[in-house]
Every structure is written in structure tokens, then in C-alpha cells.
Write a protein that binds this DNA or RNA. Structure first.
Lengths: 338, 338
DNA sequence: TTGAAAGCGCTAACAC
DNA sequence: GTGTTAGCGCTTTCAA
């Protein structure tokens, strides 16, 4: 029983490439990173050897030695609604050419989870962090502040950022929508939203909304919350509940477009005159709405642009002030009287 | 001009905690990882010092020293359709308790991008990789095969996996749907799908579908492809085009539920008798369908379960054969005659 | 243009 | 229970 040749699945190191090519580890390293001057023949030899062996560099060792990690942590509450994937698209677009790579962590709107995701990410010493929202536990804030890397809090600017913030004012967005609704002559307005104690942005929109109602001497005539399940279906159910409980309601303000779309489908099913008898509006400006029988009023949350701007800050392509405010546009669609 | 105290933002190391607590680095390390026996008082001292300083361990160094990385690479084509977020949910669920963390990479259905995402991920020496699909470039396959870690290819089992595969047979799914449609009496059947040369699974479904049609002596009476844009809207447009071009078509088979939903809304708008005059079916079983005025026929792609099983294999909680086949169920909904 | 030495911050393995 | 030593696989720095 002879000892077989060493395990061919042994993970390759620079040394293996060095031996195979007859070039020092240092020079191999230089070739693989396109650094410094290496003669063309040497370069060829190295590349050839690396390819033949199937060498994949060990970034862990590289990062430790160089104190440089080409990772950007992105911490978001959820991937399953349509908003964050689009933010991610903007981030990826900009990071594409920079050699930086986004790494996503999902918190499910849980502060505890956010804290551990941040901790976990920081322990990989990323080059920057992009985090949804301005509300974080004290521990989270402290960690981020101490990290010594650019931190960009996205989506929201109603508050004080740790480092940078890129987003919209949700309070103002709520106010604007309320003003448009009131201007269109609606008076008996209900709110339908998610039961998410930690969705601070939805909360701020509602605050702004109610504030504007108050200025016009109005208050919400009804409100309905849900959690979990198919948003479209929930939108239907909630709408049914509100119409049942408050038959004279004349406007339904939804905290997001998906439940709004469900509500719209329900109203159309019931043969209600939209937007004459009843108006509807959502929030986010999701592309789904384009395929609906009628276009739901909404407000674009500037998701793509937020992702882009945040990534630019991390990549050092922008030297912004502390806050970058974007301004969503109201899209009246077909569900608000003109 | 005196030199100020050393930068307080200097990144903390074990040594700092060691000095602050008067305990050796090694013991500090043990406490922070809950390894080995450490006396309660020592443990307290260390924890206290770490907390006070705001120490975040450096996983790069840890990983290099221990040759252990608690990361699982997940490579998927897209985040913006509803299917992969749900797979991710399944993965996260299972990985939760294991100390393993998923890291997501998106390929946009591009083989080149897939290759570089895989390379990038492998260079971090993850504990395992989960990858959508069975079709990869030769270079990708070689890298994965050499990596010496568990590789799980998900979604599809029609082919030969590198290591493990968890998924459904899309060919069979297509066949099954065709059989159900034919059994319901439809004969003039059209296909509407995405123009994605690299969506091999959609391609396989269509192959299975056409094969079953062929067995019944039928062929597709029309086909329509799209790319980009709002799927719901595209579904409408494509449906309009097909109905216009082939007025006597009596069934529309969509490559995914979103365009199917758009088509359904279009048919209902036009007052077509669904499923009498015309039937429709999609694929995926997305939860969105529950909110539609009529429920679209579809087939559940077992997304959550695929994610779970794949993660279990990586986490060593399952000792599966090479392939784990799941069986999607046909959900006839309200758009196929009974 | 190339190579040698030192060390990044941590942990395995072993001593005490 | 706790400490010491020796690296992990690279890159930085400096010498040749």
C-alpha cells in the first residue's frame, strides 16, 4: 500500500503557481493583481501556470495582508417586496466598474437582527456600509460610527445620519399626497397599511399625511392594518373591511402599491366608480402598476437613484454633504379625480 | 505642538482587549468564541472590556488562521422576479441556527457574469456554494469542482450536477401542464414567454410542453417572446398580439405567472370567457396570484423547499444522494376548464 | 524587473 | 483554566 500522490484537491496557493511557473511568489502575486512592472514573458508564464492549475487566489489572506477588502455591506429589511431589489440594482450598477462588491444582509425589519447583521458584516472589515433607514439601536450606531469607513444610510432623510444619508423625506411625501387628495375634493379618507412597528418610513409617511389632513381640518375616518400574506390579497381584504365598516369613505390611502393594487382590483370588481365615487393611492411607484386595468396613483420613491447615489459615495465618486435629498414625484395615475 | 493621543478610531484588535482586561489574547479569543473552559470571572472581565471598547473581531484574520469561513455563496440570476427571494428565504431559515451566513451574487442570466461571481466568491473560500441551474461555463464547472466544498445546484434536475442538485424537472413540469390542458379539451395552444436565451429552465419547460403536445398530435399555434419591462404590462401586450394574430387560439401558456397575470387581466378586460372560450396557465405559483380576480392556473416551483433542502445539504443536516427531486403540484385555479 | 523578509490579526496545538 | 508558539496565504517594504 503505497501512499498516493498528494490530494489533487488540496487548495492551491501562490506557492503552487510559483513552483509551476518557476517564478517567485511575489512576482506571481504581482502578475495576478496587475501590479508593478512584470516582463511580458514572465507574465505569460505565470498566467499560463495559474490557468492550468485552476488557481483561485485566497482573498482572505490578501485582505489580511493588504488591509483592504473590496466588499460593501448592504443592510436592508427585506428582499421580498419590490423596493429593495431596485435599490440593489442601482448599487450594483455603480459598483460594477469600481472593483467593489456588494454583500447583502437582510434584517426582516428586526432591530436585533439588524444589529447582528451589522456586527457580522463589520467583522469582515468592508470598505463601506449602506444601510436602510436612520433608526438603529444604540449599539448599531456605535459600531458603525467606530468602524472608520463610509456609512450611508438610505431611503430616508428625516433624522440625523451617522455619516451620510441619501433618500427622500417620507414625512413630506405623506404630506404632499394628502394635499393632492384634499385638493381633488376627497374628504373622508382612510389609511390602509402594514402592521410593521419597525417600518419607520411608512410611519413617517402616515405622520406627514395626518399632519396635512389636520391642517385642512380633517382626520382619518378609518384605518386598517395587516401583516404577512399576499399583499395583493391583503389589499383586497382590507379594502373590503374598510368599505364595509365605513361605507361613506371616499379615499383609500395605502402604505404601499401592492396592497393598493389589491384594493384597486377589489373596487373595480365591485363596480365602484374609481376615481369618482372613491379614490385610491399607494406609495413606491412599482412597475407592476403599469399592467393594472387602471393606473394607481402613487409616488416614486427614487429607489434606483438612491442606490446609485449611495454607491457613488462609497466609491468616492461623489463628495456630498451629509444629506442628499431626492424629491419623489407624484404620479396621479387614474385613481385621483382631476 | 505635541503629538495627540493615538487615533481613537484605530481599529481595535484582540491585543487591545487583552490589555484592557489583563487577560491573554488567547483567552480573550476563547471567550469571544465561547470555546474551551474559561472561568466565569475571567469571562466577565473580557466581555466587559470588549463591550466597553466596542471591539468587533476581525473575521479575516480569524478565517485565515482557522481555515474556516462561515459563508455560503449563493449565485442566482436575478433578484427582481419573485422566485429567488423565496429561495433565499428557505436558505436563510435553515442557515439561521448554523452559524453560516449566505452571501448573494447576481448574474443577470449572463454566463460571463456567473463565472466572475463564482470566482469572486470562491476566492473568499466559503463553506459551500448554492447555484441556480445546471448549465455553467466549463471554467465555472472546473472551479466549482476543484473547490473542495459542497456545491448544490438548485431549481433544476434535468442534467448532471457537479456535486449535488435540488430541484424539479422542468421538462416534466411542462409535459404535465400540456397534458392537463389537452385533457381539458383545449387544442389551439400558444406559448408566451421571455426572450432569455440563458433561461434554461423556461426552455426545458417549453420542450416538455411541446413534446406532450406532439404526442397528442398537436403543435403550438403561435408563440410570442418579450424581454425587459413590466412583466404584467408585457403580458397584456403579448396577449393582445397573439389574440390579434391568431384569433382562434383557445389556450395561452405563459412562461411565468407575472406575464400570465397580465394576460389574464387583459382577457377579463376584453370580456373574454375564461376558461370557457380561452384558458390560461403560468408557472411558479407566486403568491401574487391569490389577489387576482380569477386565480391563474400554475405550477408551484417548490422554491421555499428547494432553498431549505439546499441549505440543509450545505449545513450537513442532510446526507442526500446526488439529486434531490421535488415534485411540483399543478394548481388548476380558475383558468382551465374542469 | 525580480526576490527575500516581515508581518497582517487571529487560532490550532501544545505546554503549564 | 490559562498562556506560549507557530503559522494561515498573502502583500508590503526594501534590497538586489
Amino acid at each position: 500500500m503505497t501512499k498516493p500522490t498528494p490530494d489533487p484537491r488540496h487548495t492551491l496557493t501562490l506557492r503552487d503557481v510559483s513552483e509551476a511557473s518557476g517564478v517567485s511568489e511575489m512576482t506571481v502575486s504581482r502578475v495576478l493583481r496587475n501590479r508593478g512592472d512584470v516582463s511580458a514573458p514572465t507574465r505569460e508564464k505565470v498566467l499560463e501556470a495559474a490557468r492550468a492549475l485552476g488557481y483561485v487566489p485566497n482573498k482572505i489572506a490578501g485582505a489580511l495582508a493588504s488591509q483592504r477588502v473590496n466588499l460593501v455591506g448592504v443592510v436592508i429589511p427585506s428582499l421580498s417586496n419590490m423596493v429593495f431589489p431596485e435599490v440593489m440594482t442601482g448599487i450594483s450598477e455603480v459598483l460594477e466598474g469600481t472593483g467593489l462588491q456588494p454583500v447583502v444582509g437582510v434584517t426582516n425589519y428586526l432591530s436585533d437582527r439588524e444589529e447582528s447583521v451589522i456586527y457580522e458584516m463589520l467583522s469582515w472589515r468592508p470598505s463601506g456600509m449602506i444601510i436602510a433607514g436612520l433608526e438603529h439601536s444604540q449599539a448599531s450606531q456605535a459600531m458603525l460610527a467606530r468602524a472608520g469607513i463610509p456609512i450611508v444610510e438610505i431611503m430616508d432623510i428625516d433624522g440625523t445620519p451617522i455619516d451620510h444619508a441619501v433618500g427622500i423625506s417620507h414625512r413630506r411625501a405623506g404630506r404632499q399626497m394628502a394635499e393632492a387628495i384634499i385638493a381633488a375634493g376627497y374628504r373622508k379618507i382612510a389609511f390602509l397599511g402594514t402592521q410593521m412597528p419597525n417600518d419607520f418610513r411608512a410611519k413617517k409617511r402616515l405622520e406627514g399625511f395626518e399632519e396635512a389632513l389636520g391642517k385642512a381640518g380633517l382626520t382619518l375616518v378609518d384605518r386598517e392594518y395587516y401583516s404577512g400574506g399576499s399583499a395583493l390579497l391583503k389589499g383586497r381584504e382590507m379594502t373590503a373591511a374598510v368599505l364595509d365598516r365605513t361605507p361613506d369613505v371616499d379615499f383609500l390611502y395605502y402604505s404601499n402599491d401592492m396592497i393598493g393594487a389589491g384594493g384597486l382590483l377589489y373596487c373595480l370588481d365591485k363596480g365602484l366608480d374609481v376615481p369618482g365615487r372613491i379614490g385610491l393611492a399607494g406609495f413606491n411607484g412599482v412597475e407592476l402598476l403599469d399592467g393594472l386595468p387602471r393606473k394607481l396613483a402613487t409616488m416614486d420613491a427614487c429607489r434606483l437613484e438612491i442606490g446609485r447615489k449611495a454607491a457613488e459615495i462609497i466609491a468616492g465618486k461623489a463628495t456630498p454633504g451629509e444629506k442628499v435629498e431626492l424629491f419623489p414625484t407624484l404620479q396621479p395615475g387614474d385613481t385621483i379625480r382631476r
